[in-house]
Design a binder for these strands. Structure first.
Length: 585
DNA sequence: GCCGTTTTCGGCCCGACTGTTTTCAGTCG
């Protein structure tokens, strides 16, 4: 049973306990444990074996550790089963509807015998809910709208789409309303791989005008709520967007508060309480009798400074040790977009890219890069117009022409080479040796079992001309699960062999993801942040890969393509292969 | 159920909004 499945069970237990009306802190404990497991880079079984038990995890005590062990050993948890015998799993779907929490759901099951979303929909349509305590006609309408929305957009939005939407909203707000400071908060600011909704914070001396403009935006398909300082819309793409207008002296406090994550804020407040300090969205205060003394709130720095902490970058705010690190002065100096010196994974129209080599080179130069590697597909990728050895060598002439045409940027001759089922590569070694840079990727045989896939990738890495493994888990967010692979073994081999791991910046990939990047670093692996761009305009996607790298606590020194070209060349795997002509041990 | 630079017992983040009420519970972020 993998971490995601374990976390799912723990999280369900938490919700079931809430519906049962148990001690709310008990439910929270399960929720916290679920997050701890979900955020592990290693398998829970490995943690059990290596760290002397699961209680090593934060928020996991004796009781929850036993339940996780039961899940690992039997694939089931008897406590979970018992709870589900009392409360059917279909009830949990109702809880996902906005406006319905554990209390109301409990009442619906007990008083009306409603156990499914379908039954709930029927009851709402028939007007049978309005007589219940705390409910009315409006509640019925909200429930029906919520059900319709849930059916249409069950998934979270990918980071790229949400980013575009937020930019668009902010540009239009600036044009049509007296906006002073403005920022997107929430999971978007933390660069999470998927986004639930967009949170925008604004300061203005005319909040009413800002609200008016916001709910009147062309892309607002529905106005969910409209208040004097807070409103919510659903945009044309089905993404919910919230706006809040704050007084300037509270902007930093609100930004901190609404950036989250929820768990980061809970832990931060807990830390604050011990210091007799209170945080809320209006500021930070010293608790003194009846009158609290205000310590700040205009900037986020003031919020953290009042606790004696340096500013914690948004991407780290997941309650994964960042508060402790801040306290001890060991926050990482995170890699920034400006550190990236070149893109090492882009395609041209020689394979399945849209633009010519020269166009890609110019775009890379305009992006401020000092080098770019053209990595077209290898011959097995016939659907992607992969290059035969002959065409690969022919392409060299065009690369040389582009080098002459575009000055001020180094053009590396590269390839994205398929890793075949047996772990061999799609070009012979002597061809690979002619290139400046090789990224090796799995593009076929997804269903291979874990052991075989792990061996396949490690075999590929043993080829001395492989510099980097591309999108190492093969996932497509919301579309395709990652293939089964033992990343721990892959990273260990990569560290030993000196092969880099890619962090693909494409919002549909983001592969490696945050926690895996962090684990790779811990095991001594270097990363390459690249876009896999298939057109010039996609070079800007690098911001998402950098976001993922930052979420993985990576510094510029962990990222090979933050190096200037001469140093990069020395650090690439092939530098060693070229000298010794032999494989590493 | 978890946890301890106030604690092995007694706490566990905090405020706004909504819809329903007529002083507030539930939900949300």
């Amino acid at each position: 049973m993998d971490n995601a499945q374990i976390a799912e069970v723990l999280s369900e237990i938490a919700v079931l306990l809430e519906i049962k009306g148990e001690n709310p802190f008990k439910g929270r404990s399960y929720e916290r444990a679920a997050e701890a497991v979900a955020n592990l880079a290693q398998g829970a079984d490995q943690v059990r074996a290596e760290k002397g038990g699961l209680q090593a995890l934060p928020g996991v005590g004796k009781s929850i550790a036993k339940k996780i062990e039961e899940l690992l050993d039997t694939g089931k948890c008897s406590y979970h089963q018992e709870l589900l015998a009392e409360i059917p799993a279909t009830v949990l779907d109702m809880l996902r509807l906005p406006g319905l929490g554990p209390k109301k759901v409990k009442m619906l099951t007990e008083r009306e015998g409603i156990f499914t979303v379908e039954q709930l929909e029927k009851a709402a349509r028939a007007g049978r809910l309005r007589h219940l305590p705390g409910m009315g006609e409006k509640t019925e309408q909200d429930i029906l709208r919520g059900i319709a929305h849930m059916r249409e957009y069950s998934k979270r939005t990918d980071l790229g789409l949400a980013w575009e939407m937020a930019e668009s909203i902010m540009v239009q707000l600036r044009q049509g309303a007296p906006v002073e400071e403005m920022a997107a908060a929430g999971s978007l600011r933390r660069m999470k791989e998927t986004i639930g909704d967009i949170d925008i914070l604004v300061t203005s001396d005319d909040p009413e005008a800002v609200m008016e403009r916001f709910v009147g935006l062309d892309l607002a398909r529905e106005v969910v709520a409209r208040g004097p300082t807070k409103s919510t819309i659903v945009t044309a793409a089905g993404i919910q967007a919230d706006i809040r207008v704050m007084p300037p002296e509270s902007f930093g406090a609100a930004l901190q508060y609404f950036t989250g994550s929820k768990q980061h804020n809970v832990t931060l407040r807990d830390f604050a309480v011990r210091k007799k300090i209170k945080l809320n969205e209006y500021g930070v205060f010293r608790v003194e009798g009846d009158e609290d003394a205000r310590l700040g709130g205009r900037t986020e720095e003031e919020m953290y400074a009042a606790l004696g902490l340096p500013l914690i970058p948004p991407e780290l705010r997941e309650d994964l040790g960042e508060i402790e690190a801040a306290r001890e002065g060991r926050l990482p100096d995170l890699v920034e977009a400006g550190d990236i010196a070149g893109d090492l994974h882009v395609h041209s129209d020689w394979s399945d890219g849209h633009d010519t080599i020269e166009e890609m080179a110019r775009a890379a130069k305009d992006a401020g890069y000092r080098y770019v590697a053209i990595t077209d597909h290898s011959r097995s990728q016939t659907v992607a117009n992969g290059l035969t050895v002959e065409r690969l060598r022919e392409r060299r002439k065009e690369i040389e022409a582009a080098r002459k045409a575009v000055s001020g940027i180094a053009l590396l001759e590269g390839a994205e080479v398929d890793i075949k089922r047996d772990g061999s590569l799609d070009y012979p070694d002597e061809v690979l040796a002619e290139l400046d840079f090789v990224v090796a990727s799995v593009h076929s045989g997804w269903k291979t079992d874990r052991e075989a896939m792990t061996a396949r990738i490690i075999t590929a890495m043993e080829n001395p001309w492989v510099d980097c493994i591309g999108h190492p888990t093969g996932r497509l967010i919301g579309q395709r699960e990652p293939y089964e692979v033992d990343l721990e073994a892959v990273f260990t081999a990569a560290a030993r062999l000196g092969v880099a791991m890619e962090i693909s910046s494409d919002p549909s990939r983001l592969d490696l993801k945050d926690i895996h990047g962090r684990r790779a670093k811990e095991l001594g692996v270097k990363l390459i942040v690249a876009t896999d761009a298939h057109r010039a305009g996609s070079l800007s996607l690098i911001r998402f890969g950098v976001g993922m790298a930052r979420r993985g606590w990576l510094e510029a020194g962990d990222v090979l393509n933050a190096l200037p070209l001469a140093k990069l060349r020395k650090r690439l795997r092939r530098a060693g292969a070229g000298r010794s002509g032999a494989k590493d041990e």
